[in-house]
Simulated scan of single mutants.
Amino acid sequence: MSEQYHELSFYTLAHPDNLYFIHQHIVDAQTAQTADARTKPIAIIYALSGLYLMIEKNYTGRQVQQAHLQLSKNKKNLPSFRLPEKRGEITVQEVLKAPPGPERDAAIRDWCVSVWEAYRSVRDIIIRYCDENLK
């Protein structure tokens, strides 16, 4: 993990709105954006599920965490797909350029959207997986 990611993690873990738990969103964005052949498929699926739930279903980080727990009850039949070559134009470095507070929180959301958009070719796969496994 990069020093910048650790800096952003410190910011999100110390965030005053701990009921929302924004930290979960940076974990999902970072995992999906930096995934490679060594990344466990389950980590990629959970990260993309988290981004989908955040962006398209308006889940809080805490709700995404709960969804991950529910998904962990059925680890069979994980969908497979190729990782996109590009995984979002925004990176953790750009997020850190935003001043702490509402601007940085908005930059985190923009980063998540950027990564989710980069995976649009697997959007339907992730939606189907969530629909089948989240009750």
Rank of each mutant, 00 (worst) to 15 (best):
K76E: 13
P100V: 03
D105P: 08
I125Q: 03
I126F: 15
V122G: 05
N58K: 06
S80C: 07
S49Q: 00
T91E: 14
I42S: 11
N133W: 13
V95R: 01
L96F: 10
I26Q: 11
V27W: 11
S49P: 04
Y20P: 08
Q33G: 08
G50K: 03
L19F: 12
R87F: 15
I45S: 06
N58W: 03
I44P: 07
Y59I: 02
K76F: 06
R128T: 12
K73N: 06
Y5M: 09
V92C: 13
E85G: 09
T39G: 11
R123K: 14
L53R: 06
D36L: 04
Q65N: 10
I42C: 03
K86H: 11
K40I: 00
I90K: 02
S72R: 07
K75D: 01
V92P: 13
N18Q: 08
S49E: 01
S2I: 01
L134F: 14
A67R: 00
D105A: 01
A107G: 07
D17S: 10
L134D: 03
S72A: 15
H6D: 14
F81N: 02
S121N: 04
G61T: 02
Q30Y: 15
E89N: 13
K135R: 10
D131T: 05
Y119T: 00
P84A: 10
I125M: 09
V64W: 12
I126G: 09
I127G: 01
P102G: 00
K73T: 01
D105K: 00
W116H: 04
R62H: 00
N133L: 07
P84E: 05
T34V: 11
A37S: 11
Y11Q: 01
F10M: 02
V27E: 13
K57M: 13
L19A: 11
K57F: 07
K76P: 01
A118N: 00
V115Y: 03
H6Y: 14
